[in-house]
């Protein structure tokens, strides 16, 4: 990142630095609630010191952000696209769905679906190739983790463990 780019404010940078400031103040308030100023070696002192440092830093950061030149992006949509492009939103939604589905349908099926869907969104190759790659890479991951590292992977509450063990 060059110095010139650093002088130009990114879309959403003000919002983010204000968010961090508010977060720091909330953290300080919560840290104060632990034990207040009742002593110098209480449980709340160090969290208060840490959040105080956060408040000071975030105020300096916010001041610096306001000193920067505004970005040249026009309109909310293009600004949003710069920071959160549509592919990124897709992926975040997809990962969330994957992690939520994992305890229900198990590691194998959720990972297979996740890999297939994300390969087909990102890779832009024929569907069958994405499917093949998803199965192939999943098989390797499963072998390494289940067989070599013996990690217990979620089998899913919907599917009986015995069926899965029979398959692999």
């Amino acid at each position: 990142m060059s110095k010139e780019e650093n002088l130009i404010r990114k879309p959403g940078e003000i919002v983010f630095s204000i968010f961090l400031t508010v977060f720091s103040v909330t953290a300080f308030w919560q840290a104060f609630a632990i034990s207040g100023f009742t002593g110098l070696s209480t449980a709340g002192i160090f969290p208060m010191l840490a959040s105080l440092a956060m408040i000071v830093c975030s105020l300096i950061i916010t001041k610096d952000v306001f000193a920067k030149q505004p970005h040249k992006m026009s309109g909310f949509a293009s600004s949003l696209n710069e920071i959160l492009p549509i592919t990124l939103i897709y992926m975040i939604v997809l990962i969330s769905a994957y992690l939520l589905a994992m305890p229900i349908i198990g590691f194998v099926f959720s990972s297979a679906a996740f890999l297939f869907l994300s390969f087909s969104i990102l890779w832009k190759k024929p569907i069958w190739l994405s499917a093949l790659l998803a199965i192939f890479s999943l098989a390797i991951i499963y072998f390494i983790f289940r067989t070599i590292f013996q990690v217990v992977l979620p089998q899913g509450s919907l599917i009986q463990g015995s069926i899965l063990q029979g398959q692999f």
């Binding site: 990962i95 994957y98 994992m102 890999l115 994300s118 390969f119 990102l122 832009k124 990690v151 217990v152």
Partner: peptide, 23 residues
């Protein structure tokens, strides 16, 4: 990258899960 990134996500999920088996 289109192949690598989804794999990173899966490995991250497995890695996190492996520590305490806690979803």
């Amino acid at each position: 990258k289109a192949i690598l990134i989804p794999l990173i996500f899966v490995l991250s999920a497995v890695g996190t899960y492996a520590i305490q088996n806690n979803p």
